[in-house]
C-alpha cells in the first residue's frame, strides 16, 4: 500500500521523537459552518491528526458526550455527504494534516461502499475507523478500502487477547487505535501502567504506531498516555467544550470556536510534553 498522510505524519513525529495528538470532533457539530472553522483551526492548535466523526443516530460505543455531539450535528442537518464536503473544503488549504473518518457502518452501507470509498478518497480522507466492523466483517469495507489506498484503522481493546490480536492487526494500517478501557467513549480514565503494558503487548505483533483513546480528558492524562504510546486521542473532552459554549438556544456562540481550539491547544501541549 502506498504511503498516506498518516504514515508520513507518524514518520515525521518519530524523527522528532514527538507524539501524536489526535483530535476528535463530530462533523457538523454544532453546525456545519462552525464545525469547519474548528476543523480548520485544529492543526494550528496542535492537532497532528483530525478524527472526524460521521454522525449517526445510534452510536452504540459512545458515551453521553459524543452521543450529544452526534445529535447536534444531525439536528443541524449534517449527512455523510455533508461530512465528505467538509473534508473537501478543509483540503483546499491544508494538504498535510491526516483526516480519519470515524463512525458506524450503516450510513456508509446506505451511501454505497464503492461510492463512499471513491468519494472519501477523492475528498482527501486518509483513513477510516468503523466501530462496528470487526475483522470478521472485513469483506464489507475494510478490504475494498485498503485496495483503494485508504487506511483502515482497527480498534484493539482490553478484551482483545493474544490469540486474537494477530487477526485484529492483520488488515490494520495507518495506526492501531488502542481503546484503553472496556467501556464507552468519555467514561472511566485509563491507568498509565495498564495502558503501557497493553501498548507493549500490541507492539509485539505490529510495527504500526499505537494511539490510545477513550477516557482521556485532561492535558495531564494526555501527557501520561502519550508518554507510553505513539499518540493520544481526545474526543469527549473537546465536544464537551463545544456543548458548554453554546448559547441558551443551543446555537453556536462567539466562544465556540475559540474555546474549543483553546482546549485543543492545552491537550496538544500535554501530548507534546510527553
Amino acid at each position: 500500500m502506498q504511503q498516506t498522510r498518516l504514515d508520513n505524519t507518524f514518520k515525521q513525529l518519530g524523527e522528532r521523537n514527538s507524539k501524536a495528538f489526535v483530535a476528535f470532533v463530530s462533523a457538523g457539530d454544532p453546525d456545519p459552518v462552525t464545525s469547519l472553522k474548528i476543523m480548520h483551526g485544529l492543526p494550528t492548535a496542535g492537532a497532528d491528526i483530525i478524527e472526524l466523526g460521521m454522525p449517526f443516530t445510534d452510536p452504540m460505543a459512545d458515551g453521553p458526550s459524543i452521543q450529544a455531539s452526534s445529535q447536534r450535528a444531525l439536528k443541524a442537518g449534517m449527512t455523510l455527504k455533508g461530512t465528505l464536503d467538509m473534508v473537501r473544503q478543509f483540503r483546499t488549504d491544508n494538504d498535510e494534516t491526516p483526516i480519519v473518518l470515524m463512525g458506524y457502518y450503516n450510513p456508509v452501507y446506505i451511501y454505497g461502499v464503492d461510492a463512499f470509498i471513491h468519494d472519501a478518497k477523492q475528498a482527501g480522507v486518509d483513513g477510516l475507523i468503523i466501530v462496528d466492523l470487526p475483522p470478521e466483517e472485513d469483506e464489507e469495507l475494510c478490504i475494498p478500502a485498503l485496495n483503494a489506498g485508504l487506511n483502515f484503522i482497527r480498534l484493539a481493546t482490553p478484551t482483545t487477547d493474544d490469540a486474537r490480536l494477530p487477526e485484529v492487526l492483520a488488515n490494520t494500517s495507518g495506526f492501531v487505535y488502542y481503546v484503553s478501557i472496556t467501556g464507552i467513549t468519555g467514561s472511566a480514565s485509563p491507568e498509565q501502567n495498564v495502558v503501557e503494558e497493553a501498548v507493549v503487548r500490541i507492539k509485539r505483533y505490529t510495527d504500526l504506531p499505537v494511539a490510545v483513546g477513550f477516557g482521556v480528558r485532561t492535558a495531564e492524562q494526555a501527557e501520561a498516555i502519550a508518554s507510553v504510546a505513539d499518540g493520544a486521542v481526545v474526543g469527549s473532552a473537546l465536544v464537551d467544550v463545544i456543548a458548554e459554549s453554546l448559547d441558551s438556544q443551543g446555537l453556536t456562540s462567539a466562544k465556540t470556536v475559540t474555546e474549543t481550539l483553546k482546549k485543543a491547544q492545552e491537550l496538544a501541549d500535554g501530548v507534546k510534553r510527553a
Binding site: 452504540m60 460505543a61 457502518y105 466501530v131 462496528d132 466492523l133 470487526p134 470478521e136 466483517e137 482497527r154 480498534l155 484493539a156 481493546t157 482490553p158 478484551t159 482483545t160 487477547d161 486474537r164 485484529v168 481503546v179 472496556t182
Partner: peptide
C-alpha cells in the same frame, strides 16, 4: 458459520464485544 442468513445477520459489533 459467519452468522449469516443469506446476506442478513452477521457480527457487526465493536471489538470489545467480539471476544464475548
Amino acid at each position: 458459520e459467519n452468522g449469516r442468513f443469506g446476506i442478513f445477520g452477521g457480527r457487526f459489533v465493536a471489538e470489545t464485544l467480539m471476544p464475548l
